[in-house]
Design a protein around this nucleic acid. Structure first.
Lengths: 123, 123
DNA sequence: GCTCGATATGTTTCTTCGGGAATAACGGAA
DNA sequence: TTCCGTTATTCCCGAAGAAACATATCGAGC
């Protein structure tokens, strides 16, 4: 989850309620599902157990009016999962939020960064 | 930590490295220390153990070039803690970042919010 | 109808995190 | 010099959550 090699500068979680929130992990999971067409493959790519990946998917499917991920069992390759239009919309909205917030707060972040003891890197 | 009564809409963590980050909890702790003049009182007010509060203070003091909290033992009332100028600066910078990011992303958040299954409240 | 790969779900084990208790140090004030 | 309330630090333990393991289910294709 927390990538030790290239740490993200910015983590943003939108909290709607005690059980309902949208954050970086879920967004990344949606992206991997969209790309791989599989929950298990997405989890594997993220170093996340299938169970946890599935739990996150279930949580997202329940918190939004329409499910974000459509999954199917059996069949030619055992099954798979795809993003619904709602899933794609939520993902893009979240990514847009991240970009917007990051750009708007860049000056603040830079100022905080410059106050650190050991600056990890100039850029 | 997660307030059940009035859930915040927005949680923002600036990650500088695996060990170094600044988030809502640390910011709130700084505020309570500034107000109460005591680490233990601040922790108590936040429903946080003294141990944890102190650990967070230590982490902040080490990650920034200058310590954010100056603490002293003994004396008239047993001791206390105050924010250094650096502490005040970091706090204000973080709050500024939060405000800026929240305002900039308000439209995105509102759109995500409207896609929820059960909208907690109209406003 | 058997196989295969992925979804779906339960069970058990393990690790991590934080709380709580216990203790020491400190220094002004009575 | 004794008292007091806070900082500082260590140790033990329980709860929470993730990981690991174990099955069951499904459906196209062979």
């Amino acid at each position: 989850m927390t990538d030790p090699s290239a740490p993200p500068r910015f983590r943003l979680r939108v909290v709607f309620g005690p059980e309902d929130w949208m954050g970086p992990g879920k967004a990344e999971l949606l992206e991997h599902i969209a790309q791989s067409g599989s929950i298990s493959a997405a989890g594997r790519e993220m170093g996340m157990s299938y169970k946890r990946a599935w739990q996150l998917v279930e949580a997202m499917n329940e918190m939004f009016r329409e499910p974000l991920v459509h999954s199917s069992r059996g069949g030619a390759h055992g099954g798979g999962a795809v993003l619904t239009p709602a899933g794609l919309a939520v993902l893009e909205e979240y990514r847009g939020l991240e970009d917007t917030a990051r750009r708007a707060g860049a000056a603040h972040i830079e100022r905080l960064h410059s106050m650190l003891r050991d600056i990890p890197d100039g850029k």
